[in-house]
Amino acid sequence: MKRVLKRLLSMIPVLLGVMLLIFIMLRIIPGDPVSILLGEHYSQDTIDRLTKAMNLDKPLMQQFFSYVLGVLHGDLGVSYIMKRPVTDIILQAFPHTVKLAVMAALFAWVIGLLTGIVAAVTQNRPPDRIFMTLSLAGVSVPIFMVALALQYFLAFKVKLFPLTSDGSLKSMILPAIALGWNSAGSIARMTRSSLIEVMQSDYIDTARAKGLRRGAVIFGHALKNAMLPVITMMALQLSSMMSGAVITESVFSIPGIGRLATDAVQNRDMPLLQGTILFTTVIVILGNLLADFLYAVLDPRIRREA
């Protein structure tokens, strides 16, 4: 418990640093939110008034601190374009991203682990060769290619699935496959190499010398050890999916966090952009935390204090 608390506390400086970085970067990049908001042909007077109303005339330090103060109260500001609190917008978009991420992760885990295990136990024989060639395609074909191909063949030509997402589970299947594709490939490859390595260990000889069946050796003794590095990767992948899948969400028009971020960049909607980046940072940090704790649960050598 002490370790959890310690890790949570160590998030604070990271978050402050991230906030500062986003804040500075958004002020450096070209494009003035006021003129974007107003368009052309407005008097200097209107521009000044709006600048003042948006608090953009204050010194940078003051702007930053009032922002941090707001964040501490759960207030991420108001979107320039949508004229609504950023917190609300993000919380509204997040469930879509979560649904997509969880489905994609499930797809990646099931496919990745199964093919990885089969490949490892049939090392250098046909099933292994086939799965590893496929997984190479998995890790190397870019997401947008997979997404467009799925959309074209399965939604447009065969009409098995809707073209874009309407929020239903069925409409999420293609996006989930597209997003999980790369992860499935890397999980399969990592599971295979990790399991093959573990099978060379001395304790596998011990297990075999005990008279255990091959299945009991693989599932009872090898797999738990082989999963250690894979679990870490899976948790990190999940957190990166949770923080918004920009490409997948755009291709399938899913109103998730990734879409929010791209829209915010296009519109110079600074509060919204700051909010989404901060939010995804928290998600990624929590994902790392989760990976560490899963690791400790599986590996007694890391579990010092319980």
């Binding site: 008279g211 255990l212 069946r213 003794h221 738990k224 590996d299």
Partner: peptide
């Protein structure tokens, strides 16, 4: 053979560090 191994005949190994499964 599996019926004999670990039952009628058994084996111990050189490295007690690595010949026990670390996670069990």
């Amino acid at each position: 053979l599996r019926k004999l191994c670990g039952n009628e005949m058994s084996m111990i190994f050189q490295e007690p560090m690595t010949s026990l499964n670390p996670v069990l």
